[in-house]
Design a binder for these strands. Structure first.
Length: 221
DNA sequence: GACCAGGCACATC
DNA sequence: GATGTGCATGGT
Protein backbone atom coordinates (compact mmCIF):
# COMPACT_ATOMS: atom_id res chain seq x y z
CA UNK A 1 0.00 0.00 0.00
CA UNK A 2 1.49 3.29 -1.06
CA UNK A 3 4.73 1.67 -2.11
CA UNK A 4 3.81 1.82 -5.78
CA UNK A 5 3.13 5.51 -5.45
CA UNK A 6 6.51 5.99 -3.85
CA UNK A 7 8.10 4.29 -6.85
CA UNK A 8 5.93 6.28 -9.25
CA UNK A 9 7.05 9.55 -7.68
CA UNK A 10 10.67 8.50 -8.09
CA UNK A 11 10.12 7.67 -11.74
CA UNK A 12 8.48 11.02 -12.44
CA UNK A 13 11.21 12.95 -10.64
CA UNK A 14 14.03 11.09 -12.33
CA UNK A 15 12.47 11.50 -15.77
CA UNK A 16 11.95 15.19 -15.11
CA UNK A 17 15.18 16.16 -13.42
CA UNK A 18 17.64 13.34 -14.19
CA UNK A 19 20.78 12.60 -12.20
CA UNK A 20 21.47 15.02 -9.36
CA UNK A 21 25.09 13.93 -8.82
CA UNK A 22 24.94 13.97 -5.05
CA UNK A 23 26.65 14.53 -2.68
CA UNK A 24 28.37 17.62 -4.07
CA UNK A 25 31.72 17.16 -2.33
CA UNK A 26 35.21 16.08 -3.38
CA UNK A 27 36.17 13.97 -0.37
CA UNK A 28 34.64 11.92 2.41
CA UNK A 29 35.63 14.59 4.92
CA UNK A 30 34.14 17.37 2.84
CA UNK A 31 30.83 15.48 2.65
CA UNK A 32 30.75 15.05 6.41
CA UNK A 33 31.56 18.71 6.98
CA UNK A 34 28.86 19.71 4.49
CA UNK A 35 26.33 17.51 6.28
CA UNK A 36 26.71 19.61 9.42
CA UNK A 37 26.96 22.94 7.63
CA UNK A 38 23.76 22.39 5.68
CA UNK A 39 21.59 21.85 8.75
CA UNK A 40 18.55 24.05 8.18
CA UNK A 41 20.60 26.04 5.69
CA UNK A 42 20.56 26.40 1.91
CA UNK A 43 23.40 24.70 0.06
CA UNK A 44 24.26 28.00 -1.59
CA UNK A 45 25.37 29.37 1.77
CA UNK A 46 27.19 26.16 2.62
CA UNK A 47 29.21 26.43 -0.60
CA UNK A 48 30.56 29.79 0.52
CA UNK A 49 31.72 28.32 3.81
CA UNK A 50 33.34 25.34 2.08
CA UNK A 51 35.08 27.65 -0.36
CA UNK A 52 36.46 29.69 2.53
CA UNK A 53 37.90 26.56 4.11
CA UNK A 54 39.41 25.38 0.84
CA UNK A 55 40.87 28.78 0.02
CA UNK A 56 42.53 28.76 3.43
CA UNK A 57 44.02 25.35 2.60
CA UNK A 58 42.27 23.78 5.59
CA UNK A 59 40.00 21.14 4.06
CA UNK A 60 41.37 18.25 6.10
CA UNK A 61 40.17 16.71 9.35
CA UNK A 62 43.44 17.24 11.24
CA UNK A 63 43.71 20.88 10.14
CA UNK A 64 40.17 21.76 11.17
CA UNK A 65 40.62 19.89 14.43
CA UNK A 66 43.72 21.96 15.20
CA UNK A 67 42.07 25.26 14.24
CA UNK A 68 40.96 27.61 17.04
CA UNK A 69 37.20 27.80 17.33
CA UNK A 70 36.94 31.50 16.54
CA UNK A 71 38.91 31.00 13.32
CA UNK A 72 36.66 28.16 12.22
CA UNK A 73 33.58 30.19 13.13
CA UNK A 74 34.68 33.05 10.89
CA UNK A 75 35.38 30.71 7.97
CA UNK A 76 31.95 29.09 8.14
CA UNK A 77 30.10 32.30 8.91
CA UNK A 78 28.18 32.38 5.60
CA UNK A 79 26.55 29.04 6.43
CA UNK A 80 24.70 30.59 9.36
CA UNK A 81 24.47 29.32 12.97
CA UNK A 82 28.24 29.53 12.82
CA UNK A 83 28.92 29.38 16.55
CA UNK A 84 26.80 26.28 17.03
CA UNK A 85 28.09 24.61 13.89
CA UNK A 86 31.67 25.26 14.99
CA UNK A 87 31.00 23.32 18.18
CA UNK A 88 29.26 20.56 16.24
CA UNK A 89 32.18 20.17 13.85
CA UNK A 90 34.61 20.17 16.74
CA UNK A 91 32.64 17.55 18.65
CA UNK A 92 32.56 15.30 15.59
CA UNK A 93 36.30 15.70 15.12
CA UNK A 94 36.97 15.05 18.80
CA UNK A 95 35.07 11.78 18.42
CA UNK A 96 37.04 10.95 15.27
CA UNK A 97 40.45 11.63 16.82
CA UNK A 98 39.73 10.25 20.29
CA UNK A 99 38.41 6.95 18.96
CA UNK A 100 39.84 6.44 15.47
CA UNK A 101 43.04 8.49 15.38
CA UNK A 102 41.36 10.74 12.86
CA UNK A 103 40.97 7.93 10.33
CA UNK A 104 37.69 7.84 8.39
CA UNK A 105 38.89 4.56 6.92
CA UNK A 106 38.83 3.07 10.41
CA UNK A 107 35.32 4.44 10.95
CA UNK A 108 34.35 2.73 7.70
CA UNK A 109 34.99 -0.67 9.30
CA UNK A 110 32.04 -0.21 11.68
CA UNK A 111 28.82 -2.11 11.01
CA UNK A 112 25.80 -0.09 9.87
CA UNK A 113 24.24 -0.28 13.30
CA UNK A 114 27.42 0.62 15.16
CA UNK A 115 28.18 3.51 12.81
CA UNK A 116 24.71 5.00 13.22
CA UNK A 117 24.81 4.67 17.00
CA UNK A 118 28.26 6.25 17.13
CA UNK A 119 27.22 9.16 14.93
CA UNK A 120 24.03 9.77 16.90
CA UNK A 121 26.13 9.91 20.06
CA UNK A 122 27.92 13.00 18.79
CA UNK A 123 26.41 16.29 19.96
CA UNK A 124 25.11 18.13 16.95
CA UNK A 125 24.58 15.02 14.83
CA UNK A 126 20.91 14.14 14.70
CA UNK A 127 19.15 11.54 12.61
CA UNK A 128 19.20 13.31 9.28
CA UNK A 129 22.83 14.34 9.58
CA UNK A 130 23.83 10.84 10.72
CA UNK A 131 21.96 9.23 7.84
CA UNK A 132 23.40 11.70 5.32
CA UNK A 133 26.87 10.77 6.49
CA UNK A 134 25.97 7.07 6.41
CA UNK A 135 24.68 7.19 2.85
CA UNK A 136 26.73 9.87 1.16
CA UNK A 137 30.08 9.53 2.91
CA UNK A 138 30.07 5.79 3.60
CA UNK A 139 27.73 4.37 0.95
CA UNK A 140 25.51 2.63 3.50
CA UNK A 141 22.00 1.65 2.42
CA UNK A 142 20.03 4.19 4.46
CA UNK A 143 17.26 6.45 3.18
CA UNK A 144 17.85 10.05 4.25
CA UNK A 145 14.59 11.63 5.38
CA UNK A 146 14.25 15.39 5.54
CA UNK A 147 11.61 18.11 5.75
CA UNK A 148 10.97 17.92 2.00
CA UNK A 149 10.42 14.17 2.13
CA UNK A 150 7.72 14.55 4.77
CA UNK A 151 6.13 17.56 3.08
CA UNK A 152 5.98 16.01 -0.38
CA UNK A 153 4.64 12.65 0.75
CA UNK A 154 2.08 14.25 3.06
CA UNK A 155 0.81 16.50 0.30
CA UNK A 156 0.25 13.40 -1.77
CA UNK A 157 -1.77 11.93 1.06
CA UNK A 158 0.75 9.14 1.67
CA UNK A 159 1.67 10.06 5.24
CA UNK A 160 0.83 12.44 8.03
CA UNK A 161 3.03 15.52 7.71
CA UNK A 162 4.29 15.08 11.26
CA UNK A 163 5.05 11.39 10.78
CA UNK A 164 7.91 10.16 12.98
CA UNK A 165 11.35 10.21 11.31
CA UNK A 166 12.08 6.52 11.85
CA UNK A 167 8.62 5.49 10.64
CA UNK A 168 9.08 7.50 7.48
CA UNK A 169 12.53 6.06 6.90
CA UNK A 170 11.18 2.53 7.31
CA UNK A 171 8.29 3.31 4.97
CA UNK A 172 10.64 4.42 2.21
CA UNK A 173 13.18 1.69 2.78
CA UNK A 174 10.36 -0.87 2.73
CA UNK A 175 8.84 0.51 -0.46
CA UNK A 176 12.09 0.48 -2.42
CA UNK A 177 14.77 -2.04 -3.30
CA UNK A 178 17.72 -1.76 -0.89
CA UNK A 179 20.07 0.13 -3.18
CA UNK A 180 22.39 2.90 -2.05
CA UNK A 181 22.54 4.38 -5.55
CA UNK A 182 18.74 4.60 -5.67
CA UNK A 183 18.50 6.08 -2.17
CA UNK A 184 21.17 8.60 -3.07
CA UNK A 185 19.28 9.75 -6.15
CA UNK A 186 15.83 9.74 -4.60
CA UNK A 187 16.73 11.93 -1.62
CA UNK A 188 18.47 14.38 -3.95
CA UNK A 189 15.40 14.46 -6.18
CA UNK A 190 13.14 15.14 -3.20
CA UNK A 191 15.33 18.12 -2.35
CA UNK A 192 15.29 19.30 -5.94
CA UNK A 193 11.53 19.25 -6.40
CA UNK A 194 11.03 20.50 -2.86
CA UNK A 195 13.18 23.58 -3.40
CA UNK A 196 11.49 24.47 -6.65
CA UNK A 197 7.88 23.62 -5.91
CA UNK A 198 6.99 21.98 -2.62
CA UNK A 199 7.71 24.89 -0.29
CA UNK A 200 5.81 25.62 2.91
CA UNK A 201 3.75 27.91 0.71
CA UNK A 202 3.34 25.57 -2.25
CA UNK A 203 4.30 26.62 -5.79
CA UNK A 204 2.33 23.96 -7.55
CA UNK A 205 2.16 25.46 -11.02
CA UNK A 206 4.22 23.25 -13.35
CA UNK A 207 5.28 20.89 -10.56
CA UNK A 208 5.87 17.51 -12.23
CA UNK A 209 4.33 15.68 -9.28
CA UNK A 210 1.00 17.41 -9.81
CA UNK A 211 -0.51 17.09 -6.35
CA UNK A 212 -2.42 20.32 -6.93
CA UNK A 213 -5.90 18.87 -6.26
CA UNK A 214 -4.85 17.62 -2.83
CA UNK A 215 -2.86 20.71 -1.98
CA UNK A 216 -5.54 23.17 -3.01
CA UNK A 217 -7.93 21.25 -0.77
CA UNK A 218 -5.54 21.67 2.13
CA UNK A 219 -4.52 25.25 1.61
CA UNK A 220 -7.44 27.09 0.09
CA UNK A 221 -8.92 29.60 2.47
C1' DG B 1 10.58 43.48 4.55
C1' DA B 2 8.80 38.94 5.03
C1' DC B 3 9.79 34.25 4.05
C1' DC B 4 12.65 30.35 3.88
C1' DA B 5 16.69 27.13 3.84
C1' DG B 6 19.28 19.66 2.65
C1' DG B 7 18.33 20.43 11.86
C1' DC B 8 19.53 20.03 16.45
C1' DA B 9 19.71 20.47 21.46
C1' DC B 10 17.61 22.03 25.27
C1' DA B 11 13.86 23.85 28.39
C1' DT B 12 9.43 23.31 29.89
C1' DC B 13 4.98 21.44 30.43
C1' DG C 1 6.29 12.23 24.93
C1' DA C 2 4.91 16.48 22.78
C1' DT C 3 5.68 21.25 21.98
C1' DG C 4 8.29 25.68 21.83
C1' DT C 5 12.57 28.26 21.25
C1' DG C 6 17.32 29.85 20.00
C1' DC C 7 20.66 29.59 16.69
C1' DA C 8 22.22 33.40 11.80
C1' DT C 9 23.49 34.18 7.09
C1' DG C 10 21.91 35.18 2.47
C1' DG C 11 18.74 34.50 -1.64
C1' DT C 12 14.03 35.29 -3.45
Amino acid sequence: MGSNKIRDIYDILFKTFGHQHWWPGDTQFEIILGAILTQNTSWQNVEKAIRNIKNAGLMAAAKIYALPEDCLAQLIRPAGYFNIKTKRIKSLLKWLFDNYEGSLEAVGNLSDHALREQLLGIKGVGRETADSIMLYAFGRVVFVVDAYTARILSRHGLIDEYCDYEQLRELLEGALPADAVLFNEYHALFVRVGKDYCRPKPRCADCPLNCLPIVSGLFEQ
